[in-house]
């Protein structure tokens, strides 16, 4: 009896141990996938105004969304964000990280890295507000400084309908650059890579040659993480646009996420808002998953 009781206790303990780890996992799954499927469900219903209406109407709201010119402006802007938010940040990060590794001025490197990292420590709400002050064409810091340098600067920044989105993307690059540099730098600092670089240096390879032929091919895992994170961050961008331009002038800087917010909470078309959410999710899925698979395959080759 004693023996069996001990065994039962053991089984109980094991179950309990498993539950302890299983519970957070379950909670995570319920919160993440529960809300995800709920949003997909709502996007097929006919929910307008505050009272939910769960009558299924099929693709009605998706058809409505793609019939709006605004939706296509958003898609275009999101593509701009994807390309211009990810590529320059990654390329700049690689160069800066490599430059810091070379550290032409010993001792300065750690300060520069800290400085670069500051922006990412601040929320987009804060940096967005600061940048919208700096961008003000009339009284903003940038134009005032340029004017004091003797230039009659009237750069319109975010008030120019043609280029406003690019100025917003610049904020994103500025904010994520330090973060990107850290990731690249940490993958450069693996001991294997360091040895390879040393060997190449002994063999008399130039700095640029080392960067392209030795460093770049060996930091793929770091770049995979970095590019995936940047892709997702630039796809779901909302706060910068909301704070700095609120989609203006007109709807020139509108993005899918801001449209989702306006559709849901200002227009109170909840099903249409959920539909936009699903579209953003699908875009992330389509873009990020193939990229990850591709990168993994090349990485393991």
């Amino acid at each position: 009896m004693e023996f069996r009781k001990g065994k039962q206790d053991k089984i109980k303990r094991a179950l309990l141990d498993q539950l302890v780890f299983l519970f957070p996992m379950l909670l995570f799954l319920i919160i993440l996938y529960g809300t995800l499927f709920w949003t997909i469900y709502v996007s097929f219903t006919d929910w307008k105004n505050i009272n939910p209406n769960y009558q299924i109407v099929g693709l009605k709201w998706y058809k409505f969304l793609v019939s709006q010119p605004r939706f296509w402006v958003d898609v275009q802007n999101n593509l701009k964000w994807l390309i211009l938010g990810v590529l320059p940040t990654t390329i700049l990060a690689i160069f800066i990280a490599y430059l810091l590794e070379l550290s032409p001025l010993p001792g300065v490197e750690s300060y520069v890295r800290t400085l670069l990292l500051y922006p990412v420590a601040m929320s987009f709400i804060v940096t967005g507000t600061i940048w919208s002050w700096m961008y003000e064409p009339d009284r903003g810091v940038i134009n005032t400084l340029l004017r004091q340098l003797g230039l009659n600067s009237r750069l319109p920044f975010t008030t120019d309908p043609q280029t406003a989105t690019y100025w917003l993307i610049l904020i994103f690059i500025w904010q994520y650059l330090g973060f990107a540099v850290i990731i690249v730098q940490s993958s450069i600092r693996t001991s294997e890579l360091q040895e390879m670089v040393e060997a190449a240096t002994v063999d008399g390879a130039g700095k640029l040659r080392i960067l392209f032929s030795i460093v770049l091919p060996n930091i793929r895992s770091g770049l995979l993480v970095l590019v995936s994170l940047l892709l997702i961050s630039s796809l779901k961008v909302f706060d910068i646009v909301y704070i700095v331009t609120f989609g203006g002038p007109g709807i020139q800087t509108d993005v899918l996420a801001l449209n989702m917010w306006i559709t849901t909470f200002q227009q109170r078309l909840f099903s249409a808002g959920a539909g936009l959410g699903v579209i953003i999710f699908l875009l992330a899925f389509i873009l990020v998953i193939p990229y990850t698979l591709y990168a993994f395959r090349r990485w393991f080759e």
Binding site: G248, G250, I251, Q252, I262, Q267, R268
Partner: peptide, 18 residues
């Protein structure tokens, strides 16, 4: 109505820009 209001603002605001 609330569903049309933000759209109308956007139209006027876009007109002002272009």
């Amino acid at each position: 109505p609330a569903s049309a209001q933000p759209i109308y603002w956007d139209i006027i605001s876009a007109f002002l820009a272009q």
